[in-house]
Amino acid sequence: MNVSIKDSFKKDAIYSVVSWIALLSLYFIFNDHGIQDIITKVAILGLFAMSLNILIGYLGLIAFGHATFFAAGAYTLGLFLQSDFIIEYNIGSWSIPIALSLSVLLPGILATIVGVICIRLREIYFSFLTLAFQMIFYSLILALVGITGGDQGLMGGFPKPPFLGIDLGIHFHFYAFTTFIVILAVFLMRQIIESPFGYGLRMIRDNHERPAALGFNIRSHQLLAFIIAGSLAGLAGSLQALLDVGAYPEWAFWSKSAEPLFMILLGGMQTFLGPLLGALIFELLNDFVSANTRYYGLILGLVILIFVLGFKKGLLDWIVIRGRKN
């Protein structure tokens, strides 16, 4: 029973390394760009959904503008890699690591500003305010045509210079790198969720009134969670931008915020990896349905209805609860 601090940390670290190795083996087992790309996409979307689930599943705040930070990350990366800055300062091989760091940092700063204002409100008012900020951000992307390319998105691509022997132009390198970054982020999230800080989040979700009488300041806690979630969504967005060599305004539209909500619903919000499973189901559904019928929305809508009215919880939550009962 008496596991030391280092042990549970180590255990998660080992899980992470093993998962990465397993994913690398899958690359060679499937040896098919289609399937390999699905894994990359699931990893990115899963990171996006899991970052949102910090707020929804653990903090109990229905944030409805999470795509703001996803898009902010994507545009940050794209704009940085396109900028003259890189040539001027001869950053060359460091440009990708710097771009990725900025894509965590800037959305984090944006999340700080948005968060300070939003967390003052509760429930539906909070949701509406996050939605409003998202739509302002979306409108800005459309309006600032000179910088963002407006409704065409960030065009013209950008260079991906090799760094530390990693060349993202090579398919396998890209796959290994993306999955590595995502697993690293998931490992970090795991640490945060299992830390005293993470239990503070659950306290607020369970009862937002009692903490003050325990000397626990929930405002700063909520804000920090909002910033972490925003930064990680920014990271997911920047990986998506690397994958697509571009960034698009739709990534900041409200429907992009609905997607991770849907993934969380599919996979489950009470289980750490639930949203990741949700992303997998979502992506498979997407691929399968759009390959076989034009009526993508019809099928997707019916699936959501089944989950909303039938299961009432995500798949992994359902499995875990069943497992506990037996």
Binding site: E194, S195, Y199
Partner: peptide
């Protein structure tokens, strides 16, 4: 968990991100 969380709340321990709550 409830009592542990309350103790941590009192000691400002809930801000810690690097430890594990369970340990």
């Amino acid at each position: 968990e409830s009592i542990t969380a309350a103790i941590l709340a009192k000691n400002h321990g809930l801000n810690n991100i690097w430890k594990r709550f369970k340990d």
